[in-house]
Design a protein around this nucleic acid. Structure first.
Lengths: 215, 215
DNA sequence: GTCTATAAAATGATAGAC
DNA sequence: GTCTATCATTTTATAGAC
């Protein structure tokens, strides 16, 4: 062989991970990845379908990492006989979610940015590479389960959506620098506690209906 | 005059607003705006500093619109003697925030995307155009005020941050299509109610401290 | 204040030699 | 499986004529 193998799909993905970790999501590109591997851009196309395909692989990796981190954190939540006990897994999960997003902002961004690629769709052939969403589905299942422990309902979609929205929103605003110079202070803990307290009972029971304008 | 005036700053901004409304945020560019005005791209630079400068103008416009819409909604909140009364302005504000973001997604996006321009900074001269953030500051003040009515604390930054994070997060996730095919269902109303109930008392009073891992 | 013309720079992706 | 070479496209922004 004249040109010995330097690459593999793992090496390409790994290089892309280092790239976004150090330079941010916007730095991700075939050229930048190739440069980092000391390889010509065209060589990458033997291991990855597309730029969109590469992004899908990164998103799946991100989902797996986040899920693993969350599982560790949830397992560490103390289980006592206290009335506050059912809150614990949720609190630990929320804290880990924030920690992950703060420590690996670019990786976290891949998780949520990626779906906008469905609308980009310059190439039709790369759609097959965007299909595998196993890890992300598992992530959602874990969220549902932990929130279910809190509210007492098995498939409390609404409650899970509400908590997820808060977590993701806090991270997004913080990262965009929209909290101002003072910083978010205790806003995260405050929101998590409010959710823990306010989501306890499913919508059907509990408080009387509040007059709300139509959504 | 050989070349009669066709443009003004307002007309440029107006064209840009129509553009993002119909084609989305990513379609915003000097070329696209010029095309829409039947004018050469270079002509725009007589009325707008930069692309970044134009984006700043759009963001400021967006903040003004959102603030006005929120004020109308807040004014419509019923004021009764009920225990639930203090929640009302917040509920109405939250609903209007969602409605605005859904009806004018691109305009809402300008509000939050723009600050990332501080990091772009290809041109140093355009920084002066990014300074005016009056409307956005006013928006934050209104949020603080309404949340203050709810919790009873005058400058309850943490509570305002928590609510804002939920609102923005829900909108972001919904728009990214991350809620899946089932849709968010009642997740928004559920979250707002949880916040309304859980934020009632400032962090200092109320519930005993919950053991949380370090943030 | 608008125009023509052009600079300067990125990017993703492909064909074909080896 | 990597290489060279190149295409095709897009973009912001400026200089100078009118």
């Amino acid at each position: 062989m004249v040109y010995p193998s330097k690459l593999s799909r793992e090496r390409v993905v790994s290089a892309a991970l280092f790239l976004i970790r150090e330079q941010g999501v916007d730095a991700l590109g075939m050229r930048a990845v190739a440069l980092r591997l000391a390889v010509r851009p065209s060589s990458l196309y033997k291991h990855v379908v597309d730029l969109a395909g590469l992004q899908s692989l990164l998103a799946e990796h991100a989902a797996g990492e986040l899920l693993a981190a969350m599982d560790v954190a949830i397992a560490r939540a103390p289980r006592s006989a206290s009335v506050e006990a059912p809150k614990m897994p949720m609190l630990f999960m929320a804290n880990e979610y924030l920690r992950f997003a703060r420590e690996q902002p670019a990786l976290y961004a891949m998780l949520t940015t990626q779906s906008s690629l469905m609308q980009t769709a310059r190439s039709t052939a790369s759609l097959s590479a965007a299909i595998p969403q196993e890890a992300r589905a598992a992530l959602w299942q874990r969220l549902l389960q932990v929130v279910g422990e809190l509210t007492g309902a098995a498939d409390d979609t609404d409650a899970a959506v509400a908590l997820w929205a808060f977590l993701h929103g806090f991270i997004t605003l913080e990262r965009a620098g929209l909290f101002g110079s003072t910083g978010p202070k205790g806003g995260f803990a405050r929101g998590v506690k409010a959710m823990a307290a306010g989501l306890r009972r499913p919508a059907s029971g509990g408080h009387p209906a509040i007059d709300m304008p139509a959504s």
